[in-house]
């Protein structure tokens, strides 16, 4: 038997997971190098078994939960921003679509005329109303004074 063959089984023998058969046992008894390797493997096995189990830090759970909450919050924020951007894009697309539709169908010209008409109507309305504004303001002041006196009288009656 060659040393390589015996050395392949050394770790399993040292861990008591393999019983050396006759050939391997005979080789280990006659080869000082392989016997020394077995001693060293057994020592290593013991060292590994005695290795200290690292204790979990105190407050590990609370710190982990805090990180989870932070990550979830960031994720929510990201979703919110994403949702807002998506809504904005949808609104822009709809507006652009309507504008294109109006342009292609010729309705844009009609709508421009309608806007012009509305604008002219508003200007005419304000021109007519402007000279009477002091009169309306005076009437509003009289009404406000009357309402004030009524409120004051009511308050006194309630007392």
């Amino acid at each position: 038997m060659f040393c390589d063959e015996a050395l392949d089984t050394i770790e399993a023998i040292a861990a008591d997971e393999l019983m050396p058969d006759g050939r391997v046992a005979a080789h280990l008894a006659s080869c000082p190098n392989c016997a020394a390797a077995l001693v060293s493997a057994r020592a290593l096995e013991q060292m590994l078994k005695r290795r200290v189990v690292p204790a979990t830090p105190q407050q590990f759970t609370s710190r982990t939960m805090a990180r989870v909450r932070r990550a979830r919050w960031r994720n929510d924020q990201f979703l919110d921003v994403g949702f807002n951007v998506a809504v904005g894009l949808v609104v822009l697309t709809v507006v652009a679509g309507v504008w294109m539709l109006l342009n292609r169908s010729g309705l844009a010209v009609v709508s421009n005329d309608a806007v012009d008409l509305l604008g002219t109507g508003l200007v005419t309305f304000f021109r007519r109303v402007t000279p009477s504004l002091p009169l309306y303001a005076g009437a509003a002041a009289v009404l406000a004074t009357a309402l004030g006196i009524w409120w004051w009288a009511e308050r006194d009656a309630a007392l």
Partner: peptide
């Protein structure tokens, strides 16, 4: 699972604070 996760990682990376970070990463 924290004890098992931390022990496994701490034995693998051998730096306590790094092990804690990585263990938290696992739970994340």
């Amino acid at each position: 699972y924290k004890d098992l996760v931390f022990a496994l990682i701490a034995r693998t990376v051998q730096d306590r604070s790094r092990a804690e970070d990585l263990s938290q990463d696992v739970f994340l």
